[in-house]
Design a protein around this nucleic acid. Structure first.
Lengths: 214, 214
DNA sequence: TCTCATCTTGACCATACGGTCAGGAATGGG
DNA sequence: CCCATTCCTGACCGTATGGTCAAGATGAGA
């Protein structure tokens, strides 16, 4: 089928296969419901091979969660690069919606991990996430202090952004069921983004003339 | 310890004990991670006794999910009884936030069930939830048509309400971590509700003088 | 008190799962 | 070509889990 691979490429390729399969299986079955056999089948490798690359189920799971956390943090960049609340929050919503669309399994694994009291990434929550959140809260507070948006509680605004965007990944199955068992179309994703941005940006009182085109 | 119970009361009491324990364990460990032994221990009953009242783990899980679904639907009443978007959506947010606060475990079990493609309650999604959603969408559309709020997509507004309110239950652990490992106080819950209502009600353009006191 | 239905539970079973290992195959550097 | 390193995998093991069962305890009704 494919041409032979070099040793280093083999490792890279197999780890990718396994991580991708694991992400899907952990998302669909949860950590407890997932089995190494299922992940192996989905990756197209024998089970023993998984244990060659990842010593334990938990180690594999840990890697999956960390990978998602990185993607998740990366969406913050657009937030900081912005010149004001309209651009910053608008772009952040777009970025997080895109992640929900492209990495729904990852988002579910993250949600599941947090719901189960974060047994694996609690330290990340306490350090990286706390720092990230504090930084963003300060930025929002600055926008408020300079009169560019209403004085809303920055913390709860952030939670609202997370909740609303991640909902489209974590509850994707419910959304598809309510959509007649069909995936959202491009237009429907666009409508979702537009509606969310319109409501939140107007809701926090950004000036009309600052609104980006929706 | 307690006075002897009548036979019928015994059944009622034990089923309640088991369901309460199961809700917590399923929420914290997921369906696959939960064990009948753990539920039995938390309920203070021998494992075999669980199988006397609930034939299988899945049957027990099903009852837990159905119980939550009922509570969840019940919050819709305040929606319908309202005279307009400000009252209706405001009261709905309050009701759903109260559920997130009082039944966080239930909310997590629901979220987990949906994330795993609703193996147990798919029929409810397709019937009851579809009907409920369509009804509420019509009501919102009516408010739009009569000029009482902005023309936003009712479907995505509903998703936004679900996402934002349930986030405080499903991601409660993350929120507590970001709150210095402490539960939200009464005042903080109040701030959350107020912030959410203020942003969404303003965001959908309800008239200032229609806003309920926050 | 006697009898029946309900409730209780320790002991047990079959299965499935995470993980191990030994031995073989493939690759690469010299 | 040699051999050291990496990769591969079928067979196997111990344990934990969902579920069963038979025998006994407890309450209800007559």
């Amino acid at each position: 089928m494919t041409q032979p691979l070099r040793k280093k490429e083999i490792r890279q390729e197999n780890e990718r296969l396994i991580l991708d399969a694991a992400e899907k299986v952990f998302a669909e079955a949860g950590f407890g419901g997932a089995t190494m056999q299922l992940i192996a089948d989905m990756a197209g490798l024998p089970k023993a091979n998984l244990h060659y690359y990842f010593p334990t189920k938990e180690a594999l799971y840990r890697q999956v969660v960390q990978k998602i956390f990185q993607i998740w943090l990366q969406a913050a960049d657009v937030f900081d690069a912005a010149s004001g609340p309209a651009q910053g929050i608008g772009a952040y919503i777009d970025a997080k919606m895109e992640i929900s669309r492209r990495h729904p399994a990852g988002s579910k694994v993250w949600a599941s991990e947090v719901m189960h009291r974060a047994p694996v990434i609690q330290d990340y929550l306490e350090t990286t996430l706390v720092d990230w959140t504090n930084g963003r809260m300060k930025l929002i507070q600055h926008w408020i202090d300079t009169g560019r948006m209403d004085p809303v509680d920055p913390r709860h605004l952030l939670y609202m952004l997370w909740a609303t965007t991640q909902h489209y990944a974590d509850f994707g199955h419910q959304i598809e069921t309510l959509n007649g068992a069909r995936e959202l179309s491009d237009a429907q994703w666009q409508a979702a983004k537009t509606t969310i941005k319109r409501i939140i940006l107007k809701g926090i009182g950004v000036a009309e003339d600052e609104l980006p085109e929706l």
